[in-house]
Amino acid sequence: MFGGEHKQTDIAQSAIFTTGSMRASRLYPALLITLSVMYGDYLFDLSSKIRIYSSYILSPFTQIEYLATDTIDAFDSYFASQKRLTEEIESLKEQIRNLENQNLTLQNTKSSLNELERLFDLSKSFKQKDIFLGKISNFKKFPKEIISVDIRTNKITNDMVAFNAFGLIGVIDELLVNTVKIKPLHDLSLKIPAKNTRTLENIIITGTGESKLFQIEEFKKNGDIALGDEIISSGLGGKFPEGFSLGRVIDIKENDESNFLSVKVENSFDFTFGSTVLFTGP
């Protein structure tokens, strides 16, 4: 406990009774030496030589500032160039996206033009018949397959049939103002007069309700039919024009309890294909 007091006393003593190391007897020689050095420097320019030597010796330290500046510049340049590269990459990506969009648009235009070309080729067969074009606006699959087509004419009637670029696809189900609803050929309610291109035998095909699939009604067991036979519209009845492909025979089944064969016909094209539909009268 007396340690602290002893310490304070000691500090106080040293503070009060301390005498400086710099007395006049020491100061004068020190000043004399300094003045001699000054005179020597004045005469021989000692300080310049010392400065040159010291700058040479201390150059690694004095270069630190420049080294640091160079390093910062290098980092800055690196990140700046990296940023520029990133911006350039982003700009190129944007250009690629734009080009892809353009490409897509051109492809769409090309397919539309192809489709229109096919439709116009198709329309050549409808001599002296009125034809009308419409744009597909909607497609419904449930409860039954229906496509809605926007039209700009009021001359379309309920007895017209619809074509796309592949050929005959369906009949008008409902006629509204500026819109026509089309049901596909494979609809259960449709019966299409047709003929076998190989045997030229007239037949009736009906829709099965399944996409692209038809069946031949009441084809006798002794009739001539084979797998792969092409079936086209016969034009009988006047509703469907003659000569349009409806499909090929893909399945023939015999039933012992019946006198008729069960024949299935499939077409290859899509009811929903394309964007334009052509209408023509019977």
């Binding site: 400086g20 100061l27 000043l31 300094t34 003045l35 050095v37 000054m38 004045y42 300080s47 400065r51």
Partner: peptide
């Protein structure tokens, strides 16, 4: 040396300052 004065310029004033401070 580093501020570019004649050698001893600072020393003189430092010695005098030390003397009077003490």
């Amino acid at each position: 040396i580093f501020l570019g004065y004649l050698l001893g310029t600072h020393v003189v004033i430092f010695l005098l300052t030390s003397y009077f401070s003490q």
